[in-house]
């Protein structure tokens, strides 16, 4: 319902007390459902961290403390030095982002160090996410940055130092969508010469397609 329609409806009902909050700014709700969260409730859930540091909690953590925690909580999947076990994400490394099948890492790809804190805090360790204390998250963040040679071994991560870390790929992103970047046309007839139509690749015989009939295919390795 538009704001004017709401006001009209209220007027018809003979109870024109105020417009919706967004229009009046007086803080009177139109529907009035729900409750006002307490500051403590908001603080408990508002975990998002921005590049400018907004959302970073009090606390701090060192590279060396982070190294200990990493071996306990992270290395089983990500490898002792962040090299990534199996299909688990590789965290450290400086391979180029070009060429055949690049494997981006925190060091080579991530534009902001704050994202590392945010993600470890909200989603890691994978089997029991969001259990590390802020000091621990700061420490693991510092360790992974150090693994990538972005900060020194003496680095201590906190709400002041983390937003100041300059990530190598900070300016590697284009945030304005440049599409449409293809320009195919609605050609209907003789759009190609028949001899231009060549099969350049086929999935036939590659042997990587899971079974598509019968029960779920569990024979393929993870």
């Amino acid at each position: 319902m538009s704001s004017s329609a709401r006001i009209a409806a209220l007027a018809l009902a003979g109870c024109l007390l105020t417009g919706p909050a967004s229009a009046s700014g007086h803080g009177v709700l139109y529907y009035g459902y729900g409750t006002t969260p307490t500051a403590r409730q908001i603080a408990g859930w508002a975990i998002a961290v921005r590049p400018d540091g907004q959302g970073l909690p009090p606390g701090k953590g060192s590279v060396s403390h982070g190294g200990d925690l990493f071996q306990t909580f992270c290395a089983a999947c990500h490898g002792t030095f962040g090299e990534g076990e199996g299909r688990y994400p590789k965290l450290a490394g400086n391979d180029p982002l070009t060429g055949n099948q690049p494997r981006p890492t925190v060091g080579s790809y991530w534009p902001y160090a704050t994202t590392l804190f945010d993600y470890i805090n909200r989603a890691m360790p994978f089997p029991s996410p969001h259990v590390l204390k802020p000091d621990q998250v700061y420490a693991v963040t510092a360790y992974i940055l150090n693994l990538n040679n972005i900060v020194a071994a003496s680095f201590v991560a906190d709400a002041t130092t983390l937003p100041k870390v300059k990530m190598p790929n900070r300016h590697g992103f284009i945030w304005a969508d440049p599409r449409p970047d293809t320009h195919d046309t609605e050609c209907m007839n003789d759009c190609l010469k028949p001899d231009q139509v060549k099969i350049t690749s086929t999935a036939e015989g590659k042997g990587i397609t899971p079974r598509t009939t019968g029960p779920l295919d569990t024979s393929m390795p993870q």
Binding site: A48, P51, P104, Y112, T115
Partner: peptide
């Protein structure tokens, strides 16, 4: 924006 892991990495 927050530049979360799901919109950067």
């Amino acid at each position: 924006p927050w530049f979360t892991r799901e919109e950067t990495s």
